[in-house]
């Protein structure tokens, strides 16, 4: 399988998973396992894990970095899904190949500057740093204090990564992130609800009416 085919295949895995998410986790799992034979892992990543859903734009090394940054911005913990579990990498990868193609150079330059900084400071790539060192690095980006950055500026790179991580956490699953509504479940957002009743509007309690609904399940039901 050529590199291009690899990319296309990974893209399709992501797209299928994203598209099916609205129908629920069971359908997603069935679709992926039925249609995708296990592929050779690349860069040590399991191609069917959420973190590995990449290949539309990012190469394996850059994907690893983006996944690591996103996970530090929204880290997972038991019962609290983070960026990896939500598939933020898949969201960002698809977005950079689609709606955000104009940000491809921004990412290329930003990721290269980040690697330069990490090698100079820690003699290691960002993805392989300890979490505390990763946090220290992200804090430096946020403060705009990373000399290896010219364009994009370190702060702009941080802000964009934060924004895209939030989009991947909380956008509808059709865009490839928010896997199984991980982000919506984290914060208690019920997704697409066409109607809230007077009692629901006036309730002081958490809103729990199920199901949480995504765009494609709604599209089928309308």
């Amino acid at each position: 399988m050529s590199k291009t085919d690899e990319g296309r295949r990974a893209f399709l895995v992501g797209a299928v998973a994203g598209a099916a998410a609205g129908a629920g986790a069971v359908a997603t799992a069935a679709l992926v396992s039925d249609s995708q034979p296990p592929a050779t892992p690349e860069g040590g990543l399991d191609p069917l894990s959420a973190a590995a859903r990449q290949g539309a734009f990012l190469n394996a090394a850059d994907a690893e970095t983006v996944a690591a940054i996103a996970e530090r911005i929204m880290p997972g913990a038991p019962g609290k899904p983070g960026a990896t579990e939500a598939g933020v990498l898949n969201y960002i990868d698809l977005a950079l190949a689609g709606a955000y193609t104009d940000l491809q150079e921004f990412y290329r330059h930003g990721l290269a500057a980040l690697e330069t900084h990490c090698r100079q400071t820690y003699s290691e790539t960002f993805a392989k740093l300890a979490p505390a060192q990763q946090d220290e690095t992200i804090a430096s980006l946020e403060d705009g204090k990373v000399e290896s950055f010219t364009w994009p500026a370190a702060r702009a790179f941080f802000e964009t990564l934060r924004t895209h991580t939030m989009e991947g956490m909380f956008a509808d699953p059709v865009y490839g992130g928010n896997k199984d509504f991980a982000g919506w479940n984290l914060v208690g957002f019920p997704g697409v609800q066409l109607i809230f009743t007077p009692a629901e509007l006036e309730s002081r309690q958490a809103f729990t009416r199920s199901p949480v609904a995504g765009l494609q399940s709604k599209a089928r039901s309308v």
Binding site: A77, K80, I138, F170, G183, V187
Partner: peptide, 29 residues
Amino acid sequence: PIASAMGLVPPPGTPTWGAAYRDFFAKYF
């Protein structure tokens, strides 16, 4: 949640990312 993640700036002392932000946003969204 996207508008809130972009527009709800945490109070002084709470960061805009990381575990403390996640817990802030998960609780107060």
